[in-house]
């Protein structure tokens, strides 16, 4: 079950901005489900960078195992949401 109430619209925009910046693409080219690797030519370095930048931006710890779920914007929002929940607990 996906709940996104800890990542609001502003948080979502922050996430999208960070990812688009790293992948060097325009925001309009990325949808909630377009895939970083297949659709936006992300490599493993880009994936690590996304994880690391989000940790800094949201002050959370994200296990590298989560990279398997961080394949598109929707997946990243879910992971951040859970990380914020874990932090609040």
């Amino acid at each position: 079950m996906t709940t996104t109430n800890r990542v609001d619209a502003e948080g979502r925009a922050t996430i999208k901005g960070i990812i688009c910046d790293i992948l060097e693409i325009d925001a309009e080219d990325m949808t909630d489900t377009s895939r970083f690797k297949e659709d936006h030519e992300a490599d493993s370095m880009g994936a690590i960078e996304i994880l690391s930048q989000l940790e800094r931006a949201f002050g959370v710890d994200i296990d590298q195992a989560e990279l398997a779920r961080m394949v598109n914007l929707e997946g990243v929002v879910t992971v951040i949401d859970e990380a914020l929940l874990a932090k609040a607990a």
């Binding site: 790293i22 370095m45 880009g46 690590i48 960078e49 690391s52 930048q53 940790e55 800094r56 002050g59």
Partner: peptide
């Protein structure tokens, strides 16, 4: 200076 020593930009 970061919150954690590994909070660096890996790229």
């Amino acid at each position: 200076a970061g919150e954690r020593p590994y909070h660096v930009d890996p790229a």
